[in-house]
């Protein structure tokens, strides 16, 4: 099972996990990214490259499928204006082996950070805005999977 969704709306966590659990593998790992409730932050605006995002995330998922014995992978990434506490991204993996499920889930979220065409802009209560800068450590984590 391969599921990639790029959407503005929220998603049903229970349904997403249930779909992975139903594959019969015995092990499901997941990661959920949520907008932080930092001081003064009222919203995070996610811009993306519509013509590229889904194909690129699909390529990242294919990379995970090539590296680990997985029965299922789901990646949901939202765009648009999201408030603190809102879910941004979901990564779920199913496998007969817990190590594969956990490692592939970590790989996917690391790669999404540095290989998926999204950009985040912070909106603060005082009206200020700031584009989130890419972190060198995120790139290093992604590159670490090539070691």
């Amino acid at each position: 099972m391969k599921r990639v969704a790029i959407q503005s709306g929220d998603f049903d966590m229970a349904a997403e996990l249930a779909a992975l659990e139903s594959l019969g593998g015995g092990g499901v790992a997941s990661f959920t990214g949520v907008v932080r409730g930092e001081s003064g932050l009222i919203a995070l605006e996610l811009e993306h490259y519509p013509a590229m995002t889904a194909p690129q995330v699909d390529r990242i998922v294919d990379e995970a499928l090539a590296r680990w014995p997985l029965l299922g992978v789901s990646v949901i990434h939202r765009f648009g204006r999201l408030e603190p506490g809102a879910r941004i991204v979901f990564v779920g993996t199913a496998s007969r082996h817990r190590a594969a499920a956990l490692a592939s889930c970590a790989f996917l979220i690391d790669w999404l950070k540095s290989h998926a065409p999204f950009w985040k802009k912070e909106h603060f209560a005082d009206g200020a805005t700031a584009w989130v800068a890419a972190q060198a450590e995120d790139e290093a984590k992604a590159q670490g999977w090539n070691a």
Binding site: M52, D110, L112, K113, H115, P117, F118, W119, K120
Partner: peptide, 12 residues
């Protein structure tokens, strides 16, 4: 056909 220019991505 298309060239895109942008800052380093910040997904996830």
């Amino acid at each position: 056909r298309e060239v895109a220019l942008f800052p380093p991505v910040t997904g996830g």
